[in-house]
Design a protein around this nucleic acid. Structure first.
Length: 900
RNA sequence: GGGCGCGUAGCUCAGUGGGAGAGCACUGCCUUCACACGGCAGGGGUCGCAGGUUCGAAACCUGCCGCGCCCACCA
């Protein structure tokens, strides 16, 4: 059916097929935009800058449903600013993603049967670069398909020369300021990736384990990690615990090892937990490490970097998870296991990259001393220099920033920025800046570790603009305007950019140093049942499939219309279809306009000369544009999309286009005015839509207006430059026209409802006489009302069999219908009776309210007035319905039904 | 353990003191000349529960129940 070939019928006049096929225009348009340099920023421009930071996707990454909404929203924000006349910069790039990328390449090597050790450090890193050249950055191509208007001439990578230089500079500065230090600490260690991790790279989950109570002679301890007992160097009890007071200061023998360890008293112990006695393993537990520090205990490491036991003959060489049952068994044999609780559910840390259980491990690492940096990062939000949207998310930010631990930045990886520190033969430690010569000579060697990926990410807002050099870009585009990202990386990225930005740019003063002025947090993508998207749950939806099936615009609109600040975004196939339908609707509306000669040429006719229908749509357009502009300003994308959707579908298509058909058909002066108004409305509407659905609006706008591009067309409101303020003029706001058309709609809707209730076919024309129009302002629209409600001019033998009355008192419109032969009197009587009952009830309610003295005494006058008006309406309604009931012809039933 | 948030139509969600809304889904009629990816009309909700404030509560307060997320060094 739909295989009608519209190209034949419609192509000649409109140039647009009746069904939009995104695939045929999207790629072409994107290339055109890039070629014409629309997205290329000019640092020498006089326009005010608008800069938005693209969270650099992992070089290994693919565009997934998590990115799609954020990219859409960033693009929409940027496009609107561009149309408003800002010099916009949206700078693309990728993150080298240390562990993730190293893992991918190692897996590749694994397929060839070799390990990274076979290649050596240099060979391996070389291999990663090769991999990047060949497979990396697929996501960049996917961004083009989404329509991201980024400045490709400024594309960056966190490991490129400029970024590396920024990293080196930053490290050196922090080091010289005493904000980077090296220390032996308990850190999170991933035995599979064999590297240290920062606290936030550890995900905690409640896992099944076991709680084993072991007798250490006179005292019993409980543990979930039996294997670490080999490294115990004390047993701790609470200082006030009377049960153990006599044992504090004595020594016991540690089972299986023969070592003697002290019993000590420490405030950290909770006497109410377990036996109230804790085994202390300073090398393998962060709390125990601190207890050890306080009491001068030795730290004995019993696990190596792969999580394998390194001591104690029978257990040496066992993996930690093999050692656990082995040691439990050995203790049980000695009769020392006094209680076992399993399953025991407790919180266990996992590597956020590979899910391996984290092993707290004592090791020598580099740290950023965060105290002063975090304080500054918190203050910048507290004193309003940086705004967080939505505001309640700021609490999360503060909670983290105010309680931050020092940041472990060294990683035992090969892929990343190598720590610029050299160690000399005499134990010298020298941090080397990017412009300095590293020390040479015998015995000097560079640190083997690399920096946490997030170290370079934290510099992204200014390293991409040329820092540490004082470039024109940095001057023009820093601080950036908006950071739009998911709330899941507030800690990983947002807070760290704040810390580093404020520090590195401190010479610009408090108002110029922050990395961005506004942080707009988006939700995460969920499926239509609120579940997180994941491949394993089988509910992953691929945004590229949506683009293939429905087009980029449909995908973008679908995502944007669900995006409320900070709220999660549900996605489903049905929603995407709704998006596709909207695009088609807009397409056809514009196509209709073009087919009917809509034009943007010449000035708009004087408002006074226009019929109320035209003044109404212009008034609605102006209000809608203002609403939308405000919603964009507040990152209320869902509301902006809703307003656009509602105006496009319910007002423009359902009413204005239908109303316009008559004057367009008639031609002449009327048609000329309507064509101009129609062209204007679509011109403005397509501009308003463009930030969200760039492709289809470009195709339609250029066809409609003959303009070069909508990308650079002035935004209808909130302009900072350009002379297009007249696009939406406050003067077009027209209350009387709006209420008049509302009345017109009510008349048409009432007649339609009546017709539907009578079971009339939509196309069937019914003779009708319309009273009450002539003395009202609706008079000129009788023909349109007849057209919309399918009412004919009364014939000579007109015979009123039913009437529809809309409104009351002198302003009522009465439509008398001749339904002889078709009307179902019974149905109509039932309908009127029901409505009559409702109206009577209304009257009773309102009267009761007005009789309530307590209410009258306290309610505001306007509320009382409102109720009086309501009472008047209800009384009129009762009268009206009574009249209609009385006017109803007597019911005549077919003979065969008269018995029922 | 701490923090944040949520519970409104079958589903996903708007709605921050004055007559319960949207999209999708559902029902009926319709290939009406922009659009069947459409049109018209319609059904459907004790706004989680219980108290309180108020003339008036989906909204404000308290408690309870249920759910989600984040943070946390409970052995």
């Amino acid at each position: 059916m739909t295989a009608t070939d519209p190209a034949d019928a419609d192509n000649p006049p409109s140039g647009l097929p009746s069904v939009y096929s995104p695939a045929s225009v999207e790629t072409k348009l994107y290339e055109r935009w890039v070629d014409r340099g629309y997205f290329t920023a000019d640092a020498t421009s006089d326009k005010p800058p608008f800069t938005i930071v693209l969270p650099p996707p992992n070089v290994t990454g693919q565009l997934h449903m998590g990115h799609a909404p954020q990219h859409t929203l960033m693009d929409a924000v940027t496009r609107r600013r561009r149309m408003q006349g800002y010099e916009t910069l949206w700078l693309p790039g990728m993150d080298h993603a240390g562990i993730a990328t190293q893992n991918v390449v190692e897996r590749e090597l694994g397929k060839e049967g070799i390990s990274r050790d076979d290649l050596g450090r240099e060979g391996f890193v070389e291999r990663v670069w090769q991999w990047k050249a060949e497979y990396g950055g697929r996501i960049l191509g996917q961004m083009r398909r989404l329509g991201d208007g980024v400045d490709w001439s400024r594309e960056r990578f966190t490991m490129d020369a400029g970024s590396s230089r920024a990293v080196g500079t930053m490290f050196k500065r922090l080091y010289d300021d005493g904000l980077i230090y090296r220390a032996e600490r308990i850190i999170n260690w991933c035995p599979r990736d064999r590297t240290a991790l920062s606290d936030i790279e550890v995900d905690h989950s409640d896992d099944e384990g076991e709680l084993i109570s072991i007798s250490y002679g006179p005292i019993t301890v409980a543990t979930t990690r039996v294997e670490t007992m080999l490294g115990d160097t004390a047993v701790a009890v609470h200082p006030d615990d009377p049960r153990y007071a006599h044992l504090v200061g004595t020594e016991i023998e540690l089972p299986l090892t023969g070592r003697r360890i002290p019993i000590i008293a420490d405030e950290h112990v909770d006497p109410a937990f377990g036996t109230g006695a804790v085994k202390v393993t300073p090398a393998h537990d962060p709390n125990d490490f601190e207890i050890g520090q306080r009491h001068g205990l030795p730290a004995i490491t019993v696990l190596d970097e792969r999580g394998v036991i390194t001591t104690h003959g029978p257990f040496k060489g066992l993996d930690r998870f093999e050692a656990r049952p082995a040691i439990t068994a050995a203790l049980r044999e000695l009769g020392l296991v006094v209680a076992e609780k399993r399953p025991y559910i407790h919180s266990v840390g996992h590597c956020s990259r590979c899910d391996t259980v984290i092993e707290p491990r004592l090791s020598l690492q580099w740290f950023v001393k965060v105290e002063s940096l975090a304080k500054a990062a918190g203050d910048a939000v507290r004193d309003g220099r940086v705004t967080i949207h939505p505001p309640e998310m700021a609490r999360n930010y503060f909670e983290w920033v105010d309680n931050m631990h020092d940041w472990c930045i060294s990683r035992q990886l090969w892929w990343g920025h190598r720590i610029p520190v050299w160690y000399g033969p005499e134990g010298e430690v020298v941090a080397v800046g990017p412009d300095d010569e590293p020390p040479s000579g015998d015995g000097w060697r560079q640190d083997d570790d690399v920096l946490d990926t997030w170290f370079s990410s934290a510099l992204w807002p200014f390293s991409t603009l040329g820092w540490p050099a004082e470039t024109a870009d940095l001057e023009k585009f820093y601080p950036t305007s908006v950071l739009l990202t998911g709330y899941d990386i507030i800690f990983f990225w947002v807070a760290r950019m704040m810390m580093f930005g404020l520090y590195a740019m401190a010479d610009r003063g408090p108002e110029g140093s922050m990395p961005f002025r506004t942080v707009a947090l988006t939700g995460l993508v969920r499926d239509d049942r609120g579940r997180k998207m994941s491949k394993s749950a089988g509910n992953g939806i691929d945004p590229l499939e949506w683009i293939d099936t429905y087009g980029a615009d449909a995908a973008r609109f679908t995502l944007a219309r669900s995006a409320s600040p900070g709220s999660d975004i549900p996605v489903s196939e049905e929603l995407a279809q709704g998006g596709r339908n909207l695009i088609t609707k807009l397409w056809n509306a514009t196509r209709f306009a073009i087919l009917n000669g809509a034009t943007v040429e010449g000035p708009l006719p004087d408002l006074q000369t226009l019929p109320a229908t035209e003044r109404w749509i212009l008034s609605r357009l102006t209000r809608t544009a203002a609403d939308i502009d405000g919603y964009f300003e507040d990152f209320q994308f869902a509301k902006a999309c809703d307003a656009l959707f509602h105006f496009t579908w319910d007002e423009l298509c359902d009413w204005y286009l239908e109303l316009a058909k008559l004057p367009l058909e008639r031609g002449g002066v009327e048609a000329t005015a309507t064509r101009r108004v129609l062209g204007h409305v679509l011109d403005v509407l397509l501009r308003l839509w463009h930030p969200v659905i760039p492709f289809v609006t470009e195709e339609l706008w250029t066809t409609l207006t003959g303009g070069e591009t909508v990308v650079l067309a002035p935004w209808p409101t909130g302009l900072v430059t350009g002379g297009a303020a007249a696009l939406v003029d406050v003067a077009t706001v027209d209350g009387p026209a709006e209420s008049l058309i509302t009345q017109l709609q009510a008349v048409v809707t009432e007649v339609r409802r009546f017709r539907a209730e009578q079971g009339l076919r939509p196309a069937q024309r019914v003779p009708a006489r319309i009273d009450g129009l002539a003395n009202g302002a609706l008079g000129p629209f009788e023909d349109q009302i007849r057209s919309l409600a399918r009412l004919q001019i009364p014939t000579d033998d007109f015979q009123e069999t039913a009437a529809v009355v809309v409104g009351h008192s002198g302003r009522a419109v009465r439509v008398a219908l001749d339904l002889s032969g078709t009307i179902d009197i019974g149905k109509e009587r039932a309908r009127l009776t029901k409505a009559f009952g409702v109206a009577v009830n209304e009257v009773a309610l309102a009267e009761a309210k007005l009789a309530d003295e307590a209410f009258i005494a306290k309610a505001p006058a306007q509320v009382v007035d409102k109720i009086r008006v309501r009472l008047g309406d209800a009384v009129a309604e009762v009268e009206r319905l009574r009249g209609q009931l009385d006017a109803l012809p007597p019911e005549t039933l077919p003979p065969d039904q008269s018995q029922q």
